[in-house]
Design a binder for these strands. Structure first.
Lengths: 329, 329
DNA sequence: TGATTTTGTGTACACGATTACACAAATGGT
DNA sequence: ACCATTTGTGTAATCGTGTACACAAAATCA
């Protein structure tokens, strides 16, 4: 129960060797006698010695830390992906540092702070971070942008999501059901992602000679979905609402049912996006434009591996969404 | 857009000073001329210099890293608290490292890894970590245990949650409604927390001369809530189910409604625990034993502050739960 | 003016590990 | 038995900061 951590030099004295040998005992493939290593490891265990990762990082120029920039942890739409990624990172002995921020200037501040920790990789989930800021702040670490901003760049790798086909399927079905008045409930008023997602559906509508009749803007939360849906349904005659994510769709559906007494799918069609586990819960059973989160995070890890292998050039991976059919549309 | 990060020594050369002066320019209260500092900061900005936090940590013996040990990020019951804590830590310029693990041996492994990074603080949300393991692994950092294990110890601080009064209120109401056959749906079969929570309700039942007639064990997830509720309702005649957390309660309610065609609260009373935001959503409107998460995380930060101030002795904070009334019981 | 304090800066070492280099001992081949 | 190679270990430098100490210049005080 020592209050102070033992150093390699002290352990060296205890084991009767030099501190270099201690280090070698902990490096899997280094020239060291088997007997010596065993003895050192035994003494180390006895005294609770573990090499100091901070000192090692300084020497190595490799911290094994990964910064994850996200908007929220509490929102299931993001948390689900984050959990998958965290598990994958941990399996590679990489430790995730979470940078979670709603406010933009705070976020940049935070990113600067994390960059001083010499993180080996940066994964940006937030659609609010511009590529310029990302490259600026992490100039030694090529960031991985997990948004859908369609930019090719040598200094940034990114994952592109294509939901156009699945959005087409969904719109086709809803139109076939006889609906004509569509509204789009955005997750935010100012992000690439949201504009692109809306476009998938808008293009699909155009094929039927239709367009969105109304737009509303929330903040990806249940509350905003609820509130904006009420306003939307009061000021328009929409019979179908496409929502920016699943949580907002759930909020919108509750609003329709509770405030306006309209049920899905009979009186109103509601579509979500993301395909989170919750969307499939019996109480929701949402029709949603879903993404395979496991494949998504596999792609992120793939990019990390490419960076580690020091492959040059921009890296980009494209994933496609699928329609998940529930009973709300 | 330099590929390599500039060091304090290089910047010193550029600014025509010694590296010590560079360091001083970045330390708020240190003896340095105002003009020199301004000049250095200007040159630093120009070359994108930021002090290397890893090197600083090594020198300082202070990493400003905090390890958060959790079972899951994806589960809203935990994610909500985690988000609040992360925000509070970031406001104090502390960076959270997330250790997220379902498997027990992996978790210990991960905790050992994090401990080599000389984290300044450790907050353990997982009820699966024994105090002995925590102290063993983080022997230089007094861990903060956020579980309800009622142990006094000098080397561990903890937050104790008391839900007995609120559980009493809830049980009183349900009994008054005429129900007599209670079941408890645990979140896990082997944790302190769960046993204690169950006891709050069991004690309240005892005051009415009642006891739990049936028990089931899940894993805090919706799916397990759903599945176990089906089995439970098949093998017992329970007319009230107390669940280990809100997510399981939602699962149980869906199961009752869908599989057995029993609605809440008429055919069955269902109670959750945690009081997450989702519990208040219109589609759930859960009656739940709720905790003020903001106050909870304030308490965690309070303990961190006490550790920073190096106050001796065991620290313990007790919080009490409140009943949140919904329409499920 | 001369003594004393304050201010600003450089030098050198510490933090705790890794690793290039040197070198002795052990090993192998003929 | 001799030389070449391999093996195991110690010495010393390095990673990038922070800071105790030393010391000159400037400021303060009588």
């Amino acid at each position: 129960m020592s209050r102070k951590r033992i150093t390699s030099k002290e352990l060296a004295k205890l084991a009767g060797v030099s501190s270099a040998t201690i280090s070698r005992a902990f490096s899997p493939d280094s020239r060291i006698g088997g007997a010596t290593r065993d003895r050192i490891l035994a003494v180390a265990r006895e005294h609770g010695y573990q090499p100091n990762a901070i000192a090692r990082s300084l020497n190595n120029q490799r911290s094994r830390l990964v910064a994850l920039v996200v908007n929220a942890i509490g929102n299931p739409c993001e948390a689900e992906e984050q959990q998958l990624l965290v598990h994958r990172l941990q399996a590679k002995q990489l430790l995730p540092i979470i940078l979670c921020c709603a406010d933009h200037t705070d976020r940049l501040q935070l990113m600067r702070l994390a960059s001083t920790y010499q993180v080996d990789h940066v994964v940006i989930f937030s659609d609010m971070v511009s590529m310029k800021d990302a490259v600026d702040i992490f100039h030694t670490t090529r960031p991985i942008i997990v948004s859908f901003e369609p930019v090719e760049s040598d200094s940034v790798s990114h994952i592109r999501i294509d939901g156009s086909a699945a959005a087409g399927e969904i719109i086709d079905k809803i139109v076939k059901d006889g609906r004509k008045r569509f509204a789009y409930l955005s997750g935010t008023s100012s992000s690439w992602i949201d504009k692109l997602r809306r476009k998938w559906f808008a293009d699909a509508l155009a094929k039927h000679g239709l367009a969105f009749e109304a737009d509303a803007y929330g903040d990806y939360s249940y509350d905003s979905g609820f509130k904006e849906a009420v306003l939307l349904l009061h000021r328009s005659k929409a019979d179908a609402i496409i929502c920016g994510n699943d949580v907002m769709a759930i909020g919108a559906r509750d609003a329709a049912r509770r405030v306006l007494n309209r049920n899905t799918p009979d009186d109103l069609a509601i579509v979500g996006q993301d395909g989170i586990a919750m969307a499939a819960w019996d109480c929701h059973d949402l029709t949603t434009l879903s993404l395979d989160h496991a494949a998504f995070m596999d792609a992120v890890v793939d990019l990390i591996d490419r960076h580690d292998a020091d492959l040059e050039g921009p890296h980009s991976i494209t994933l496609t969404c699928k329609a998940r059919w529930g009973t709300t549309a």
